[in-house]
Amino acid sequence: MASVEVKAERGLRGTLPFISTLVLVLLMLLQYRLFFLDNIFPFLSLIGVYYWSIFKPHLIPVSLVFMLGVLQDILSGGPLGMTALLLILVRIFVVRQGSRFLEREFLFNWLVFIFVAVVFGLLNWIIASLYIREAQNLWNIFGQIMLTIAIFPGIAWGLSWVRYLLVKESR
């Protein structure tokens, strides 16, 4: 059964986790023309990397996470390497926890995600402040963290649908 699953994850279908996270990266960069969203847009790529690191870590290796992070840094105009570094750290943290994550319910994953999002946001703020050489507005990052946590169930539901496509094919 396991070999059938691995077989189904090879090829183009196996790129679904990477593509779905790439879509999230691109969604972060679009102009939504809403004043209140301008400074507090959620970290969608964080949700993608966190989700796939739990459920299909072998399909989203460190090299791909690095690529996604660098791409986001390039297209957003931020410091090159910042998002790449933070996303890799998230992946390492999640993979280190092992399969225990999978044994729990969604609510547990969400609670862990709250911790991850807060640390991710604060590190983002620290690196950006060091890069600009001026302490940046903490309220903005607070808003981003809150919105990321709030939107997590919705995005995770969308990604679980993508994961279902992978599992369905392996049956």
Partner: peptide
């Protein structure tokens, strides 16, 4: 045409 936003509160630029 403006095609993107920075998506960050710390870096304000667009493509």
């Amino acid at each position: 045409r403006v095609v993107s936003d920075s998506g960050s509160p710390f870096f304000k630029s667009t493509l």
